[in-house]
């Protein structure tokens, strides 16, 4: 990726939001909250790239969902949502299926999130559908303590 915009408002994953979650009483995965790194909200169809890595390993998109506006969307076709708006102030919640949850100890969680600014054609960009990319992801290192284990 050559040029992209990064306003520095958000580092992607919200501090302190990573937590394991359970299904039927058993750890089934983990979740975290994310915010837009931009000055305005965007339709989900403006998400060009969405992915998660745990300790360098890419999570299968089948195991990823993205929740906003009281709905939960599959990572597979997130960008088909042309009328679902991600408000600037709202946190989206990402769920990662990972039976057993994040194990005890330290982990690097990476959010890959590239958006595009739909009113701002990329100067000198090729093709008719080429807009300024907005970097909205980041990596954070978390330690899952004993008391956070489910």
């Amino acid at each position: 990726m050559a040029f992209f915009m990064d306003l520095g408002f958000s580092k992607g994953i919200c501090d302190g939001s990573i937590a394991n979650f359970a299904v039927n009483g058993k750890p089934y995965g983990f979740q975290f909250d994310i915010r837009l790194n931009y000055y305005r909200g965007l339709f989900l169809s403006c998400i060009d790239e969405f992915g998660v890595k745990v300790d360098g390993e890419e999570v299968d998109p089948m195991d990823l969902t993205f929740a906003i506006n009281d709905k939960e969307f599959s990572a597979l076709n997130l960008n088909e949502n042309i009328s679902e708006f991600w408000n600037l102030l709202h946190k989206a919640r990402v769920f990662v299926r990972m039976p057993g949850g994040l194990p005890l100890g330290q982990h690097a969680i990476t959010l890959r999130l590239m958006l595009r600014s739909p009113y701002l054609p990329l100067p000198g960009g090729e093709g008719e559908h080429n807009y300024v990319p907005i970097q909205s992801g980041g990596t954070i290192v978390v330690t899952i303590p004993k008391e956070k284990m489910l």
Binding site: E80, P118, Y119, H129
Partner: peptide, 12 residues
Amino acid sequence: ANMDRGMRADRN
């Protein structure tokens, strides 16, 4: 207002 011509992923 914004003119989000590129709001769809598949086309303008």
